[in-house]
Computed example of a mutant assay.
Amino acid sequence: MENLYKTDYYQWVKQQKELLINRQFDQLDLEHLIEEVDDMGRHEPRSLTSHLKQLLMHLLKWQFQPERRSRSWQDSIILHREDVEELLEENPSLGLKVPELFSKAYKRAVVLAVKQTGLPTRTFPKECSWTYEQVMKDGWLPEE
Rank of each mutant, 00 (worst) to 15 (best):
L55D: 03
E86L: 04
D83E: 13
L96V: 14
Y106Q: 05
L33I: 12
E89T: 09
L79I: 00
P92W: 08
I34F: 06
Q74N: 12
A105S: 13
R71D: 11
I77T: 12
K104T: 11
Q11D: 12
L20D: 09
D83R: 08
Q63S: 15
S70E: 11
Q15C: 01
L59C: 11
L56Y: 06
K53E: 15
P66V: 02
E44D: 13
Y10Q: 10
S50Y: 14
V13Q: 03
R71Y: 12
D38K: 06
R23Y: 08
L28K: 09
R71A: 10
K107H: 15
K14Y: 06
L20C: 14
E35D: 15
Y9D: 08
H58F: 11
L48I: 09
D29K: 02
Y9F: 15
M57V: 02
L20G: 14
L87E: 10
E67C: 00
T7M: 01
L48G: 06
L96G: 10
E89V: 04
Q54Y: 14
L59K: 05
K107S: 14
H58Q: 13
F64R: 04
Q24V: 02
Q11V: 11
H80I: 02
L94V: 10
N22V: 03
H51R: 01
Y106G: 06
L19P: 11
S70K: 08
V110D: 14
W73R: 08
E85K: 09
N91F: 08
Q54A: 10
M40F: 12
E86A: 04
V110A: 07
L48R: 03
Q16D: 08
V37W: 05
D38P: 01
P45T: 05
L60S: 02
F25P: 09
L59I: 06
Q65A: 07
L19K: 15
S70Y: 11
Q74D: 12
H32D: 07
K97R: 13
L79Y: 10
W62G: 03
I77Q: 10
L48T: 10
Y10L: 11
K17I: 15
L59Y: 10
E86D: 14
P99D: 05
Q65E: 14
L79H: 09
L87Y: 03
V37F: 11
E86Q: 13
L56Q: 15
V13W: 03
F25M: 07
Q65K: 09
V110L: 09
K107N: 12
F102I: 04
E89Q: 14
H51I: 03
Y9S: 02
R81G: 01
R69A: 00
V13K: 00
K107E: 15
D29V: 01
L19F: 12
S93I: 05
V98K: 01
L96C: 00
S72T: 14
R108K: 13
T7P: 02
P45L: 00
R46Q: 12
V110W: 13
Q16P: 09
A109G: 10
K61Q: 09
L52C: 03
L96N: 13
Q65G: 00
D29I: 00
S50M: 03
L48M: 06
W12L: 04
L52G: 06
E36A: 04
Q15W: 08
L20P: 10
A105M: 07
L60G: 02
P92C: 04
M40P: 02
E18V: 01
I34H: 03
V84P: 07
Q54T: 15
W73D: 09
F25T: 12
L94I: 08
S103D: 06
W12S: 07
H51N: 08
V37N: 01
T7R: 08
